[in-house]
Design a protein around this nucleic acid. Sequence first.
DNA 1: TGAAATGTTGGGGCG
DNA 2: ACGCCCCAACATTTC
Length: 469
Amino acid sequence: MDRAIWWIRRDLRLADNQALTEAIRQAKEVIPLFILDPKLINSRNNSEKRLSFLYHGLKELDADLRKLGSRLIVRRGNPAKTLAQLSAEYLIGQIFAEADFSPYARKRDTRVAALVRLELVGSLGLRHPETVIKDDGAAYIVFTPYMRAWKKHGIPGRRELLPIPERINTPDGIDSEQLPEPMGASGEMQFQPGEREANLRLERFVESKRGGIFGYGDLRNRMDSDGTSGLSPYLRFGMISARQAFAAANEAIQLATGPEDDSSAQTWLNELVWREFYISILYHFPEVGKQSFRPEMRELQWANNPDDFNAWESGATGYPTVDAGMRQLNATGWMHNRARMITASFLVKDLLVDWRLGEAYFMRQLVDGDPAANNGGWQWTAGTGTDAAPYFRIFNPILQGQKFDPDGTFIRRWVPELQTVPREYIHQPWLMPPSLQAKVGCIIGKTYPGPIVDHNQQRHLALMMYGRQ
DNA sequence: TGAAATGTTGGGGCG
DNA sequence: ACGCCCCAACATTTC
């Protein structure tokens, strides 16, 4: 084959890239192509920060490609039309891409495959969803059996990962669109986009002597510390492959020196398996993107009060941990996982708002926003999903804060109005006597809202709402 | 990857 | 010495 297109979608990396490797193996010349698909770019649930991360990431990828004698070609338009037109114009033999399993991606790829030769190589998870199924061919809908089956297959060692190609021959004279100017300089972003940063983060995480993967078991839930890997945006855009992450996790498990380290590293690896699980769920049950997985939970009578929702999204519920989480999200496009569970539980089970509104809001904010993982997380919280939390499992935002942010460091970082509130009141500032409020300059109802609802009361309402179904 | 409600146990104060 | 009560601490059940 003379010419192939490496169609880049959610695999913005040169290392361990099966689609790219296969394109180079089969064709003399390879065109690295990214298509700005208006359907995705202009989607109502897209996020400025995620787009900015993508655009910066594409710039990085272009720079990396130029070191290999190639460059990134960017086109805007309908993918099927764009690929058909390019294929005809440049006599493309085949298009190689990494498989993506969101309902939209699958529809899109079907349309593309009807017009041009498209070969999907590898996937955004380590295992293709068709390969982890029960003996009778049904999909797993409970995590633990899924994980057991998943783990029966091997995890490649780091030495088996595909190297960065030495050179990519790309024909000259192919027009490329300018990338839209991303908002904000990449150097100021919390997540520096690009493959290089992704690898640095993974290395730091698995090689760190304190914290990192071996401290993960203890620290992952602490909202007041950096106990997580911070890799989600990179996995989201494939700046690092799932295989690379799994290989590193597995190697850490081999190197663990005690049962604590071992179980800590296992815990992180399991989080990666949760990602695979939700990719698989969305693949086998694409309708979860629109409605509850559980049919009996599709007609819940949500309150959907707009004022409550506004208070939630802007971080003004009067519950410090909830507000801190939402403000972290709004400010950075990322939220600690524990805070995601707490804020989500609050929206669904304290404010009785349809989980789909929360899911959409998260998609509009998150740098790492991914349809499978985000949907899985929300359905888990709402108790409507496959292997979901039972409906009566309701987070108490005060207790969660006391457990996972005992000093209120996380709260004070994101809710400056509460900066001066003493430790003993930080999770319930409304209990401060008026004299203390005046003394510390935090007046409940003025400088910081009182709780918009009573948790205990709302908890009972939620139990009734779910119980009636 | 929860928390509240309810039940059980046992030590200590006390008459 | 004994029974009774209280209640913290822990366990179990329930939502």
